[in-house]
């Protein structure tokens, strides 16, 4: 796939603080010594319209505790407008996970392949300068709504517009006659006191309903619904397993939540014969979590 002409805005400076692109290869002396566990790039959604927002996520997991990653080269993002970025580097006893999320907006339709992001570092396994690369990502950009051609547009304007106007005028006249003739006058509504502003509706927490539904109907789909909601709540990404979540401390120091995650995972993947017992344990863990 050929390179698209560059017509996007340059990335904001903030996007480059965390993942510092290098123009020339860094010398071995300036490279960090890293044990790179994974270096992955994902895009969400994979199919979108021109002008929609795409989140390009680059996740790097290393065994070392590092504050930031240097010598990372972002791919050429020609054909995308940059809308901003989020970044976080979290260290734990198991190393560091750095995540960079770039918000992008495609400017052209078609299948677009974003080249791999690269990281230059000294590979702790071999002791040699290495060039790590993520996977490339291909997205499908759809042109915004179909536009009528010139001839079609002329036909629409010349023929359909007078008809549409006539229909609208007729409908309005009928509505007026019908309304005045038959509709009762509405009762006057008491004014809303100014001192009692209407509060915005509180966000509804779906988890209690999902747990209640699981208790009422002990089936695998109900377990999975609870699992999905808990994963969403603790910020699990779609590529993260339970082990990944626990390693990066997604449950924090909440032991009850860890128990819930394990029990729900068990109920999600256990054999059908043992499912009722596993659901009982999951519900008990959820109950303990709620109490805690």
């Amino acid at each position: 796939m050929g390179q698209q002409p560059t017509d996007c805005q340059p990335l904001p400076a903030s996007a480059l603080n965390f993942l510092v692109p290098v123009v020339a290869p860094a010398s071995a002396q300036t490279l960090a010594r890293l044990h790179v566990r994974s270096f992955v790039m994902t895009a969400e959604p994979k199919t979108l319209n021109v002008g929609d927002t795409l989140r390009l996520r680059i996740v790097t997991r290393v065994d070392e505790n590092v504050g930031q990653l240097d010598n990372v080269t972002l791919p050429d993002l020609a054909g995308f407008d940059s809308l901003g970025d989020e970044r976080v580097c979290a260290s734990s006893g198991h190393g560091t996970e750095c995540t960079e999320v770039l918000a992008l907006s495609p400017t052209e339709a078609g299948d677009r392949t974003i080249a791999p992001t690269t990281l230059d570092a000294i590979d702790a396994r071999s002791g040699k300068p290495s060039h790590f690369a993520t996977n490339p990502v291909t997205i499908h950009v759809i042109a915004a709504g179909p536009q009528p051609s010139g001839v079609t547009r002329t036909l629409v304007e010349d023929l359909l517009r007078p008809i549409a106007i006539l229909v609208l005028v007729g409908a309005a006249a009928y509505a007026l006659l019908w309304g005045f003739g038959r509709r009762p006058r509405p009762k006057a509504q008491p004014p809303i006191p100014v001192s009692q502003p209407i509060a915005p509706p509180a966000p509804v927490d779906p988890l209690p309903q999902l747990i209640a539904a699981l208790a009422a109907e002990r089936t695998r789909p109900r377990v999975l619904a609870v699992r999905d909601e808990i994963r969403r709540r603790i910020g699990a990404r779609e590529d993260e397993t339970l082990g990944d979540l626990l390693r990066r401390g997604a449950a924090g120091s909440d032991r009850a939540l860890v128990d819930v995650l394990r029990a729900v995972e068990r109920a999600s993947f256990i054999d059908d014969d043992q499912l009722p017992g596993a659901i009982d344990e999951a519900l008990a863990a959820l109950s303990n979590w709620k109490r805690a």
Binding site: V36, R37, S38, F39, V40, M41, T42, V59, P116, D123, S130, H131, F132, A133, T134, N135, V137, E238, D239, E240, T241
Partner: peptide, 18 residues
Amino acid sequence: DKVDPETIVAGVIGAVPT
């Protein structure tokens, strides 16, 4: 390109939703 094959494998695995 001096790309580490291990990173490629990890990238392929990591790109598949669990």
